[in-house]
């Protein structure tokens, strides 16, 4: 049932900016860019540093550790493919390397998620796609 096209969750389509990020996810690595001019990390990957507009960016693999900056437990899914997951957590994660990204906090009771909660990244396989999706789970 979950393989019917209408119930497949949105599949990210990598582009020139993001290909290494999504390829990294498929290999179990959370890849991000660090600017060699100003030293700051950035998410999402792009063609220049959004802090200083420098072009000298280095790809690094994050250790995969972070904390919940904020979250919401979604009870009403915006589209049908997420309806069976509700209630599920949409969260902002602050990674130890100094950037923030959005994901679900999985492998836990949504009612236990808190701001400041330590999490680690995991890579979720989803039906209907070969692209693994970066996610977070409690430590």
């Amino acid at each position: 049932m979950s393989d019917t096209p209408a119930l497949i969750k949105p599949i990210p389509v990598p582009d020139a900016d993001s290909r290494l990020y999504w390829e990294g996810a498929n290999q179990g690595k959370f890849m991000f860019q660090r600017c060699l001019s100003c030293g700051k990390a950035q998410f999402y990957s792009r063609s220049l540093c959004s802090h200083c507009q420098g072009k000298n960016l280095e790809w690094q693999a994050a250790k995969g550790l972070g904390k919940v900056a904020s979250f919401s437990v979604v009870h009403r899914a915006p589209i049908a493919p997420f309806a069976d997951d509700a209630p599920y957590v949409v969260a902002l994660i602050d990674m130890d390397e100094g950037f923030r990204f959005m994901c679900n906090v999985i492998h836990c009771d949504p009612a236990t998620v808190r701001i400041g909660m330590p999490v680690r990244t995991v890579f979720e396989e989803r039906p209907g796609s070969t692209q693994k999706i970066p996610q977070a789970e409690p430590m």
Binding site: P10, V74, P78, P81, Y88, C103, N104
Partner: peptide, 13 residues
């Protein structure tokens, strides 16, 4: 499309 929609983000969330 790459960094929010795959997570079922609704506008309220």
């Amino acid at each position: 499309p790459q960094y929010e929609q795959p997570y079922g983000m609704s506008v309220p969330s």
